[in-house]
Design a protein around this nucleic acid. Structure first.
Lengths: 146, 146
DNA sequence: TATTGTTATACTCTATAACTATA
DNA sequence: TATAGTTATAGAGTATAACAATA
């Protein structure tokens, strides 16, 4: 039988809570004055330098979109592009020291946002939530209907 | 201490799973050839007729956006607008019989999507997930940072 | 010929404000 | 003057394809 109200549906609940959680996280990502996507890019660069193409794949954004992101980060002095000597088509992207400092602030803000979001849950409950979310089936296959 | 990888963060996990869940739900909402927002509008109209303004508030969309939605639904014969005799500024919006039939198909598709999404969880686990999600703090206050 | 990064273009969404008709 | 609905416009976001440099 159909649910009377969309709020009765677990899928809607997960979708809506996820959306609001994402909005809160994005606000935290913007703490250093960066566009959330730019801050995400810094997070992705934290472990070390990588090629522009791999970076786009890791961020799951189109390479053409990454161009603007890196232009922003580079002009703000937070990241640098340099040619790969081994393959001069490639750009190696690396975070600068200023970028690492900005990332620290972003990390702190995101941590604070998560403390707020999950303030009503014990550490154990947060762990249960994590495990349950990990078991939600989110195949990437398209279910577009005509 | 900061999480090394964004995927270690529960907030990111909830946001990302929520987004993918939303995409799956939207695909199901489109089963009758409707835009997901139009299908959501039909769901909202299921309990009975309501004013256009209240409908916009219930859907949490701008009244000006609802105009296009209702134009679509009306031209497809799935909903009707009529003037409120008591206040001729208002429109009373009501679902037609064809709209109810379309909604049935939508409901079935959404139900199927939810069965897929939560196939790996027992009914009890789904209940635990629901309760935990209900306790996530998602205040609507803006946390925009400059 | 294929690949990397870049640029340009177009399309969707959304947010805003002006406009009308009613009150 | 305020409200319900409508229309028009502009901005952000995104997806796509064409392009130059290099392999």
């Amino acid at each position: 039988m159909a649910a009377t109200d969309s709020s009765d549906r677990l899928g809607f609940l997960l979708s809506f809570r996820g959306e609001l959680t994402g909005a809160r996280i994005r606000a935290a990502l913007g703490v250093a004055g960066l566009h959330p996507r730019n801050a995400m890019t810094l997070m992705q660069l934290a472990p070390g330098a990588m090629s522009q193409r791999d970076l786009a794949a890791a961020l799951e954004i189109d390479p053409s979109q990454l161009v603007a992101v890196l232009n922003d980060l580079e002009s703000a002095g937070l990241a640098e592009r340099r040619r790969d000597p081994a393959d001069r088509r490639r750009h190696i992207v690396e975070m600068t020291q200023a970028g690492a400092a900005a990332l620290e602030r972003v990390d702190a803000a995101v941590g604070e946002a998560e403390r707020e979001l999950f303030a009503n849950l014990t550490a154990e409950e947060q762990d249960v939530l994590r495990r349950l979310l990990d078991r939600v089936v989110v195949d990437r296959g398209d279910h577009d209907c005509g």
